[in-house]
Design a protein around this nucleic acid. Sequence first.
DNA 1: TATTATTTTTAGATTAGCCTAAATTTTAAA
DNA 2: TTTAAAATTTAGGCTAATCTAAAAATAATA
Lengths: 222, 222
Amino acid sequence: MILLSAVEENYLKYIFQLSEISDRGIVKTNDLAYKLEHSAASVTDMLKKLSDKKLVAYKKYYGVSLTKTGLQIAVQVLRKHRLWETFLVKNLKFTWDQVHAIAEQLEHIQSDELIDRMDEYLGHPKFDPHGDPIPDKQGVFSSANVICLADAKLKKQYLLANVNDESSAFLKYLNKIQLKLNDKIKILDKEEFDETIQIMINEKKQMTISKDAAQNMFVKVV
Amino acid sequence: MILLSAVEENYLKYIFQLSEISDRGIVKTNDLAYKLEHSAASVTDMLKKLSDKKLVAYKKYYGVSLTKTGLQIAVQVLRKHRLWETFLVKNLKFTWDQVHAIAEQLEHIQSDELIDRMDEYLGHPKFDPHGDPIPDKQGVFSSANVICLADAKLKKQYLLANVNDESSAFLKYLNKIQLKLNDKIKILDKEEFDETIQIMINEKKQMTISKDAAQNMFVKVV
DNA sequence: TATTATTTTTAGATTAGCCTAAATTTTAAA
DNA sequence: TTTAAAATTTAGGCTAATCTAAAAATAATA
């Protein structure tokens, strides 16, 4: 078990996250640079280093993907992040918009024993407070079969299953409009021009949701 | 509130701990180097840096002490360390010999809100699992009035109040001989030659304790 | 008190992780 | 298909935090 720096772990985590929404799992240097808020040059440097350590498969000017080892580590970092978020919300009564930044620190604490005990303490949760799946010790995610609200069908009943945890402002907005996980959502109408949608929440409250907000929300069929 | 690196925080923490057992609170470069397991040259470099930041008062060839600001930060790091140790033992059921290394990482997580909520969650504990006092948010320690077992009087009834948390091996030894905090201890005899002591534990079990072990144990009068 | 030993600092290097500016490669557009 | 634009890499530099070896200051000893 090679110990990685917090920086290296972050690279693997973000490569994993970006690879999930890219074609053939290939992540571009610039996309990583944008996520990490680093220069592209810095990213290139680190990709070479991670490649030397056999954690990523990197091809110059083409892109990067995780090796088997790199994937395993990325998933364990994600596991730690989500377990910590769960602890912060469930036990320490943080709100869901407060926990991401703290979990970004806690996810790099190096102790398998700690995370095993935390998992046990929390009762082996399958999803974190934002609805993100928590991989188990073996790295297996329970799948939730969600679709983005921006791509969901009209007039169909859904449940809010997952929201983007990275933007505190977005989560605060959800607080303000009192939208929580597992609320019922039905799209009543969609404006062609700006893709704003009209939704019905819990069959009683009607709202207008911007395209931007809808892209950060994920629903599943009832 | 200036954010310090984990390394800087560690320096302040160790300067604080060493100053408590030094004359007039002056800490020597070599003592710090030994504690930190760094070269003396590295320590000198860092002391200059901390001095520039007004966190320590450093005089070349003489020694270093904490400024008011440096002291405040050191105490808060200690507070975090001890609250985390308490959480690890009380809630996650770690044994007291397992928690120091993990707490050394956790103590550098930057979030006042986190530590306030953790303190609340744990019920504002005054002492950690090793009997070390946990300073409150204002940095005030509750004093325990302990003396080192190596300096304790013969034939007097004491309670084990505090043990050195830094050596996992020592704590494992205490586990083996089933000695816990608040156990009654009476020194029956002290060998002049090697300062080995004979103790009676809880008025029923007699044991021989080395000088080395006794120096890591602290007792208070019943 | 002179000399030696110890402690501490200085000088100079190294590595990780970042940067900007310039060069190169790839992609898109005319 | 040539050329312009965008993406990416290379080159060279910087800071934090470490090191070793040599120099300097202080403390201990003869």
